[in-house]
Design a protein around this nucleic acid. Structure first.
Length: 431
RNA sequence: GGAGAGAUGGCUGAGUGGCCGAAAGCGAUCGCCUGCUAAGCGAUUGUACGCCCUUCAAAGGUGUACCGCGGGUUCGAAUCCCGCUCUCUCCGCCA
């Protein structure tokens, strides 16, 4: 969320920023609530002050065995008034809070102005698109033909958007997770963490999924627990309500996690295959940074995600999301899009964002400045490194052969007992 | 799931109605002392939100809240009462 004080003092700038994001927000209501809150607060604090000092006098009188009944009677009335003010303060703060919680972050000045995904700017493009002597197939057709992806049985077991992986299909998914974690820990300096796949309401609120996007989440029946839509939630919440030491920053964590998304409102979109599932695997990078360096960290984070694709030999491009495509909590986002020959298009495989202090304020993640001793909010960042299911899609489609087999990228072979090619006959070689 | 014990500042830990935002110790920071290190001495050392001052901010002043969370009793609650959460011990169950 945004800082209430900042909002109050920079309301016109924020109005403009939200206009550019295509958000219609009634900031007059905010100003009213804010003024009301401070009025009530002052009144109630004055009364509390009176109560505190009179109560002290009562104590002194009683100690001297003198009569304090006049004061006590008077304070009964003051306490009643405090209770009334407290109630209206509670209501006002609730309204104010509800308002602030649904205001998106302010975009960084470098974010391109836009009205849709066509306005995202292409930052760079890498790799040679493979040339085929045949019509390249889509991954779901390749996967079903090789008997490594089984969508029908996934649907039987659970429902639409669930998949069974088999043999080399299951192995390549697992290999990718290990490959990505090893790369980020050994080459990019991240510490691996493994966090819960269910989180409570506070955690979801801290990273911005709640209260605004409840319909995207799976909630556990009868409990205030939710399935994680991304490891960003549990990993960022590791340091919720904590004050970190400046020397420890930046803290760079990487986590594998399955992700669960209700995908409400995406009916009819990507209905076949692995692209859009209710459950998918992801390796996620999360950073806690000092404000001064967070944009450098964003560039590094994005490069770390890109490195996975480079090592796998998958062509990609990186785009900077425009104002209207930017996610709720993000100040700036790069999407890395992998080339998918079967679909003849680039598809998002990673999303790398700097949230600045937006999540940190909700989550109360701060650090103490070494020289001044002052506490300040950290900046949080995260990015997929990468979405595993979509990486499988990219490998199947880019490395498909005329006979329907799939060449395994060299970087992955050590993680697959040396397997070089997925064919229908040899699902997996003997070790 | 059953029984019991507990939750206080960066940490340990005292505090069972007013003198408590909280003793003491440890740690940390600054200063003094010391040839250096250690020891010693002195000072400082929570967070949030208002208000005043200030062009803004910082600094400063002032007020309020916070002793796991939420309610209640009381002129007054870390302290008493109720509910919840979490931790620990024992029993049961269990990968």
């Amino acid at each position: 969320m945004l800082d209430v004080k900042y909002l109050r003092q920079n309301i016109e700038l924020v109005r403009k920023k939200m206009d550019d994001r295509g958000q219609k927000i009634d900031f007059d209501r905010f100003l009213d609530l804010d003024t009301k809150r401070r009025d009530i607060l002052q009144s109630v604090e004055t009364l509390r002050n009176e109560r505190n000092s009179v109560s002290k006098q009562v104590g002194e009188l009683k100690k001297k065995k003198e009569d304090a009944s006049a004061l006590i009677e008077k304070m009964g009335d003051v306490s009643a008034r405090i209770k009334e003010y407290d109630e209206s303060l509670r209501v006002t703060e609730e309204e104010l809070n509800a308002f602030v919680m649904i205001v998106p972050n302010i975009q960084h000045e470098s974010v391109p102005q836009g009205g849709g995904s066509e306005d995202n700017t292409i930052v760079r493009t890498w790799g040679e698109k493979p040339v085929f002597t045949f019509e390249p197939k889509q991954h779901f057709e390749l996967g079903e033909n090789l008997n490594i992806l089984d969508f029908a049985r996934g649907a039987k077991i659970t429902g639409a958007r669930f998949t069974v992986y088999r043999g080399a299909g299951a192995a390549i998914e697992r290999a990718l997770v290990s490959f990505m974690l090893d790369l980020h820990t050994e080459k990019h300096g991240y510490t691996e963490v493994l966090t819960p796949f269910m989180v409570n309401r506070e955690s979801m609120t801290a990273t911005g999924q709640l209260p605004k996007f409840a319909e995207d989440l799976f909630k556990i029946e009868g409990m205030e627990y939710y399935l994680v839509p991304t490891a960003e939630v549990p990993v960022t919440n590791i340091y919720r309500d904590e004050i970190l030491e400046e020397e420890k920053l930046p803290i760079c964590l990487v986590a594998y996690s399955p992700c669960f998304r209700a995908e409400a409102g995406s009916y009819g979109k990507d209905t076949r295959g692995l692209i859009r599932q209710h459950q998918f695997n992801k390796v996620e990078m999360v950073k806690f940074s000092k404000p001064e360096t967070s944009y450098d960290e964003l560039e590094k984070l994005t490069a770390n995600a890109e490195e996975v694709l480079k090592r796998l030999g998958i062509p990609y491009r990186t785009v900077c999301l425009c104002t209207t495509d930017l996610g709720f909590s993000s100040a700036k986002t790069y999407d890395v899009e992998a080339w998918m020959p079967g679909q003849n298009s680039y598809r998002e495989i990673s999303s790398c964002s700097n949230f600045e202090d937006f999540q940190a304020r909700r989550a109360a993640i701060r650090f103490r400045k070494k020289d001044s001793g002052k506490v300040e909010l950290v900046h949080t960042l995260n990015g997929s490194g990468l979405a595993v299911g979509r990486t499988v899609v990219a490998i199947l489609e880019n490395y498909q052969q005329a006979d329907g087999s799939i060449i395994i990228p060299e970087a992955l072979r050590p993680y697959m007992r040396g397997l070089e090619r997925i064919t229908l006959e040899g699902i997996f070689p003997k070790a």
